[in-house]
């Protein structure tokens, strides 16, 4: 299941979507809005995406994960728009017969999403300035 949403993520619904009697393990990853990055205080975040390509890339990653590991369920939900501190920007849930696979697949999915899916976050710093985050691009703060 792949979803881009503008409302708060219902993590229980994400978990329910991968529940199965074939699974012995469910791993849920939540990415949440952090208060301090490299010593700077964050007030809030905004996320934007290239919708058609982001959905396509997320679906490809789900398919690749299912090829690589024996997953039962796989769900990725990314939130867009304005997020306050502590709110979840992404939820990834995977279920599998045994736990090692679920941990491994979940880690691979979040690491790979951060490299290839066209979604961007903007830091709204507590000092009133804003900054798009572009890892590796000289002027930006990296994460």
């Amino acid at each position: 299941m792949i979803k881009l949403v503008h409302e708060p993520i219902d993590s229980q619904a994400v978990l329910d979507s991968v529940a199965s009697h074939d699974a012995g393990a469910v791993v849920l990853f939540l990415g949440t809005t952090r208060a301090v990055t490299h010593g700077r205080r964050t007030a809030s975040l905004d996320y934007e995406c290239y919708p058609e390509m982001a959905e396509k890339k997320l679906a490809e990653l789900e398919a690749q994960a299912r090829d690589r590991w024996p997953l039962v369920g796989c769900a990725i939900v990314h939130r867009l728009g304005h997020l306050e501190l502590g709110e979840a920007s992404i939820a990834i849930a995977v279920s599998s017969p045994h736990r090692a696979v679920a941990f491994e697949a979940g880690q691979w999915l979040i690491d790979t999403i951060k490299e290839v899916v066209p979604i961007w976050k903007r830091e709204n710093w507590a000092d009133g300035t804003t900054e798009w985050v572009h890892p590796g691009l000289a002027s930006g703060e990296n994460d």
């Binding site: 990415g31 996320y47 995406c49 290239y50 058609e52 390509m53 982001a54 396509k56 990314h78 920007s89 992404i90 979040i110 999403i113 951060k114 490299e115 290839v116 899916v117 066209p118 979604i119 961007w120 976050k121 798009w132 985050v133 572009h134 890892p135 590796g136 691009l137 930006g140 994460d143």
Partner: peptide, 28 residues
């Protein structure tokens, strides 16, 4: 990106291609 796929510099563009500038991503 061309037609929703990362494109190599050698790719020949067709009229009507959907092109996008993709700065380093920071989702998740």
């Amino acid at each position: 990106a061309v037609n929703n796929e990362y494109a190599r510099d050698e790719l020949v563009l067709a009229p009507g291609a959907e092109v996008a500038v993709i700065p380093p991503v920071s989702g998740g």
